[in-house]
Design a binder for these strands. Sequence first.
DNA 1: CTGAAAGCGCTTACAG
DNA 2: CTGAAAGCGCTTACAG
Lengths: 334, 334
Amino acid sequence: MQNRAKSVTIFDVADLAGVSKSTVSLVLTQSDKVGKKSKQKVLKAIDELGYIYNRDAAAMRSRRSNLVAIVINDLTNPYMAQLATNLERILNENNLQAMIVSSNNNLELQTNAVKNLKEYNAAAFIICPVANTCAKWLDTLSAQQKVMTLMREVPFSAAPCVLPDYKKASHVASMHLLAQGVTHIAFIGSELSLSDSQALQSGFNTACSQHGVTPLVAISCSQNQALSAKNAFIEAYAKHPQLSALVCENDIIAQGVFTAIQTLNIPTNNNIKIASCYHLPYYSVMPYSLSTVVINTHDIAKRCHLVLKELLQNTAPPVKTLVNVNSLIRDSSQ
Amino acid sequence: MQNRAKSVTIFDVADLAGVSKSTVSLVLTQSDKVGKKSKQKVLKAIDELGYIYNRDAAAMRSRRSNLVAIVINDLTNPYMAQLATNLERILNENNLQAMIVSSNNNLELQTNAVKNLKEYNAAAFIICPVANTCAKWLDTLSAQQKVMTLMREVPFSAAPCVLPDYKKASHVASMHLLAQGVTHIAFIGSELSLSDSQALQSGFNTACSQHGVTPLVAISCSQNQALSAKNAFIEAYAKHPQLSALVCENDIIAQGVFTAIQTLNIPTNNNIKIASCYHLPYYSVMPYSLSTVVINTHDIAKRCHLVLKELLQNTAPPVKTLVNVNSLIRDSSQ
DNA sequence: CTGAAAGCGCTTACAG
DNA sequence: CTGAAAGCGCTTACAG
């Protein structure tokens, strides 16, 4: 809580510029109803006085806000952080102010964060929902506020959702391995029951069917962390030493698997092939070859903004928007 | 921009509760001047009407705000993301609303972000400054706003700063390696000219002196990314094949170095010892032993909040606060 | 505890 | 383009 001194207002600006309060307001709201000379005088006065536009007052009077809350479930996931950053930049370029908050994969924190942000008059909420987010909660929220979800669908919710084509991503990654003739293949990921993981597994299974391969049971990591993946792999490998290929949910999981392989000292003639369904730029520097699909954060952010725009304009956006993935398989060993 | 419908106000709440507008306001501002029965009635009415407190209006009238902007230079660095998340939680627990924005290591974006956030009446700014942040800019800002920096000092600025004891961290890490009798040792990090890196190098150099060892020239990575570190190491190793120990700025750099060592296939009898000055929890799963100092994000966040509190209370906080590092060297090979 | 009143800094018609 | 006026939803003394 801070006490602020009496501040410079549009009154002071109007005085110094020798125009009316209304004119100053028109300049501030980018109106084109103001002549060039008046505008110049106003801008000069603003500069001289160090005037700061008070968006709280403006928002209150106009019942408009350009504050967009971005609620991220896992900010320590570099993919999410980069997505949030990209989104923030795009929103900025479109005169919207992004406000990133973290729900830290905690349902209660997510609920609380949204509740608080409502009091700050956020114009819209972009939510990367935590696991077990309730469709009913989301739908109730949607009835009062502009809401969309990102990267993860909340099943049966009516809130518009933007997410990558997970199914295609895993299908591409899986086909890449299957084309090399592998037969003992498994999927490994965290939170296998969630909608995004389900979509990935579905693409994987489809690819296996197409090659007439029966996949091994999916390997589940307790968390989306390299260490979890390492341990999960070691356990699974003990049970299935014939394992020869692995489709990883993402690069974080892949990193853990690589480490496990080195730790176990698996002989190279037993070479296990690995693919990852999406790439974390700059994250992985594997000493081995890793085939990975690229899901561009910028593409996702751009599409997210378009849906947001529709939401703000009250044209009902599609309830689900799949963003294409870049099927270029990259070898990220370098 | 969104048009909001006519909203439920304290007027409506007062009506339904059968009390005065003032009483409702007193309840909302946590005053203790309200009787229990009135308070109950008000809370009930709030619940029934789905009333949402309008903080913009409250902030405007009271000239107070509990919005704290956290400007992070690199959100894709998991350490920074975790720090931001921890800080956010602590602020929340103290009735402050955190607003994370990213400057993406870009001076212009940082300047712009701060400029925008001023218009939203942020009560304070916690800035993890980008490289080359100008002390003059920061001091001008400090004159108008409550500002503090985090994790990185802007040299010669008067803004209070909270950061870990980098010098100790690198000293501990270096001593750990030097105690094993290594003689050809170097420091590797990114942006070597920045204040935080300088502090790390200083601790490293002190440790070397104490052991009578002359360090090799510091290895510079173009960015704080594993890939940069990998390439930088490979280049440096070609010049200095006698290199036998390396003190890394952090786990990201260490990860790159490890990958380089594997890629180069350096013989094990030539085993290069590695330590990292700070640990990124959950980040690194190295197949090898990595000695790393723990700089707890929660400790930093807690101290940051205390300094912020002083700032908000107008008691001048110390210009520089060093947070102790946990000298427990951990072996993060598992 | 209440009620009437003033005011935070802006936007928005509206008549000139 | 101007100027006077109303009002967004709240807080804050103040007299009762």
